[in-house]
């Protein structure tokens, strides 16, 4: 109980520190990147007078320190500000729908990775040193090395354009129709995490099988299936929890590229557009949300780990 409280308090402190650092850091960094938001909104044909007027409207004529101070002041009040580009629309109203898309994509990819990776890793451990194990390990290595965008392009070409069993991108805008559009990008994204999970489970299962309690269970006459399901699997699957937690950030960055390939209206697409147009409030909002999400995801992974592994609670 004390351990859980310690983890919670540590992580909550982390959330606050991360939020502050990200807010100040991104506020500063996005303003140091060359480019003029007013120019990207009004284009090449705008007169210097119109550009100046728009800069004034957007508050870009103020010193950078003052702009950052205003941003942080708003954040403390729970206000992420208003978009430069989508005039009159708040950052929150713009990024929440995109966050939902990315969250669904990442969640589905993690689910697929778990559903495929754990049984596959366990299976490979059970047939260790065989031809199937060798082929399986080689395939997993290849898949881990395959970048998400490449996996996305291959799947897009094969499944959508050639086989025509999934749309070649887009978004229905309503559930459950959205599943028709999200499953293929989720498969593309899971082609990184799934093999990682399978390799981890295989290794952990091989170690578990050698443990005395497994030998003891066998000696007691427990069936092979029961030994695998009740004794090997729970122990082999334990390292998967921190693995998924630590890869939350990787999943988000992978989602950025996969979203672009499948034209999903997620955070990745929005971030790219916001950076391109120097829409600072949106960039800051997404950076903050992503950073906090990763910390929270790690917190959940820690808590889950604590709840399923009694050894950690006793430390």
């Amino acid at each position: 109980m004390l351990t859980t409280a310690r983890v919670l308090s540590t992580r909550l402190l982390q959330v606050i520190i991360v939020a502050l650092v990200v807010m100040i850091g991104t506020s500063l960094l996005v303003r140091l990147v060359p480019g003029d938001a007013a120019r990207t909104i009004l284009g090449d044909k705008a007169s210097p007078g119109a550009l100046d007027a728009l800069r004034q409207t957007l508050g870009l004529d103020r010193p950078i320190a003052e702009q950052i101070f205003i941003s942080i002041g708003r954040l403390v009040q729970g206000d992420l500000g208003t978009s430069f580009n989508f005039r009159g629309q708040t950052v929150t109203s713009l990024i929440v729908p995109a966050l939902l898309v990315t969250a669904c994509l990442a969640a589905l990819a993690i689910l697929l990775s778990l559903l495929v990776g754990i049984p596959l890793g366990l299976g490979l451990a059970l047939v260790r040193s065989s031809g199937a194990d060798l082929l399986g390990r080689l395939s997993l290595t290849v898949l881990v090395a395959l970048p998400s965008f490449m996996a996305g392009l291959i799947l897009l070409y094969l499944v959508s354009i050639r086989l025509r069993i999934a749309p070649a991108g887009g978004w229905a805008g309503s559930w459950p129709s959205n599943f028709g559009y999200i499953w293929l990008p989720a498969v593309a994204l899971s082609l990184y995490l799934g093999p990682l999970i399978a390799r981890t489970v295989r290794q952990a299962a091989l170690e578990t099988i050698q443990q005395p309690f497994v030998e003891a269970a066998r000696a007691r006459g427990v069936s092979r299936h029961r030994v695998i399901i009740c004794h090997v699997l729970p122990n082999a699957a334990l390292p998967v929890i921190p693995l998924v937690g630590f890869n939350a950030g990787v999943m988000v960055s992978g989602a950025v590229t996969v979203e672009a390939i499948f034209a999903l209206p997620g955070l990745g697409a929005q971030l790219v557009q916001a950076m391109g147009t120097r829409d600072f409030p949106i960039v800051q909002g997404i950076a903050l949300l992503t950073a906090v999400s990763v910390v929270v995801f790690n917190l959940l992974a820690d808590l889950l780990n604590l709840s399923v592994d009694p050894r950690l609670r006793s430390r």
Partner: peptide, 18 residues
């Protein structure tokens, strides 16, 4: 529909989505 990447636009066109 906003489809930023030209290759993605073409893929959706070939696939019949647009």
């Amino acid at each position: 529909k906003k489809i930023v990447d030209p290759a993605a636009r073409l893929a959706q066109l070939q696939g019949g989505q647009i």
